[in-house]
Simulated assay, not measured.
Amino acid sequence: MPENDLPAPDHAARRPADIRRWRRYLADERAEAATYRDLASRRSGEERAVLLALADAEKRHEQHWLDLLGDDAGRPLRGDLRTRMLGVLARRFGGVFVLALAQRAEARSTYGSEEFATATMAADEQIHEEVVRALATRGRNRMSGTFRAAVFGANDGLVSNLALVLGIGASGVSSQTVLLTGIAGLLAGALSMGAGEFVSVRSQRELLEASTPDPKSATALPHLDVDANELALVYRARGMAMDEAQGRADRVLAGLAATGTLAPEVLHDENAEAATDADDDLETHGTAWGAAISSFCFFASGALIPVLPYLLGLTGGQAIFVASALVGVSLLITGAITGLLSGTSPWSRALRQLAIGFGAAAVTYVLGLLFGTTVG
């Protein structure tokens, strides 16, 4: 089905509002095509080819609006602000953040309700969203371990230390006591996060290593009783059906008898090995020490923010207000980033993060007020 499968409206029947809208569509299509080309320039292989194909599709949509506009196309307009910002980010950075933004841009297409857009164009935009989603998913998977440590670490630091500082401050103690409490909370929390991440990653690696077949076991295969064929038990223990395990064991030993050589990998189950490799990539990215240090730094960077007003000499309600404002902005930023990367609304995620953080801090603040009143 051709892109311009709609008859061009009579020139005299063109409404100024239609022409303005078509010119806006034209500008957006040009900007989106440029964005995909910029992203493709930072990629190679299949990802580059897919992005260039998306740019070609946007070029076809651009031609549709050019055909409708004819002499009314006029001088090129700039795309809308969101599309222009997407192009700037693509030229400067590339990466999964831009792909996540592009996914949301494709999801906002109005061609489904646009009478002068073809059914093919509307379908293209729906499929483009899925294409960009798939490309963004690759990046999300690659950065999942680091992203988890960054978001959870920073948010834990922000929320826990704000709650601690507000709770202690509301009890009526001196600003110096609040500052010392905040610094103690920063160090204790960061050390706890770092130690916990170290133990978690190291334990996960040790579990995976314990589940990996010992290559030395393959040296015993030439001496197995062919009739008993203990090798089949290995495959059955790994989840194969009895007949399948026996067949594979027979093939391995027959190959050994024919060639006299045997690769250690014969003890591995391909499916289990692939799953283990995938888990290893996503869950144990980096070393245990690297994970511990990054978690320490992320938590400390978040926990430092509620303490900053006190370090700068602010006291009382003024310090509490500034600390809350700084943490609020930080929570909005981390929530928005989470929303962008997950392909959902950054505003809803930002507000959710803010509500959770301030909710926890409000509880400790009220407890601090009650405790201060009781002591007084």
Rank of each mutant, 00 (worst) to 15 (best):
A107F: 02
G153A: 07
R21F: 12
Q63L: 13
L54N: 00
A8P: 09
D71C: 02
E3H: 14
Y365T: 13
R23K: 01
I337W: 03
E206R: 14
V266G: 06
G328F: 05
A254L: 12
D225I: 00
A12R: 13
G343Q: 03
T181K: 03
P76H: 04
Q204A: 09
G172I: 07
L341D: 04
S160M: 07
A258Q: 10
D250V: 05
A249G: 07
D214F: 10
S160P: 07
G286L: 05
E29T: 05
I183N: 08
Y111E: 10
G182N: 10
T181S: 15
L370C: 01
T261M: 09
R23I: 02
G87K: 08
T35I: 02
G194I: 04
L54Q: 02
G112K: 07
G239L: 09
G70A: 09
W65A: 03
R236W: 03
D279P: 00
A17N: 01
G145W: 05
S324E: 02
S330N: 14
L256H: 09
D38P: 00
G94V: 12
R238Y: 06
A12G: 14
D243Q: 14
V322T: 02
G335A: 04
T120R: 15
T118E: 06
T287V: 02
P9I: 11
R82G: 11
Q204V: 00
